[in-house]
């Protein structure tokens, strides 16, 4: 009985551990925070980090840089337009004419 009990206990403990692990992930409810404002958890069966997994979107750094480059270029063109406007009082949109 004791052995059985121990085995049952071990099995129960294992099952409980599994249940807790699965339960904790399955019950992802956003309340277990690593730090204030940082409460995301991976769902059961899903990775904490997706890099190198089947869910890795493998983003191309060149594509990721395009928005930033575009904004920088727009800001530079706008600055030239404003500078000319302040000097002349006339708005010229086409920067090639400045």
């Amino acid at each position: 009985m004791k052995t059985t009990f121990r085995m049952t206990g071990a099995a129960l403990a294992g099952a409980l551990a599994l249940a807790l692990t699965a339960g904790s992930a399955a019950a992802y409810d956003g309340t277990n925070c690593k730090a204030p404002g940082n409460c995301w958890e991976a769902k059961p069966g899903y990775p904490e980090k997706i890099a190198g997994t089947k869910y890795d979107p493998k983003h191309d750094p060149k594509e990721l840089a395009k928005q930033g480059d575009s904004i920088k270029a727009m800001e530079e063109r706008n600055a030239k337009r404003v500078e000319n406007f302040k000097k002349t009082g006339k708005w010229v949109y086409d920067v090639s004419k400045l």
């Binding site: 730090a35 204030p36 404002g37 940082n38 983003h59 750094p61 990721l64």
Partner: peptide, 16 residues
């Protein structure tokens, strides 16, 4: 402060 403060605009994302 429990809403979160510094660094989270990067820390709460993976990579870039």
């Amino acid at each position: 402060p429990h809403y979160g403060q510094k660094g989270l605009g990067l820390e709460t994302w993976e990579g870039d």
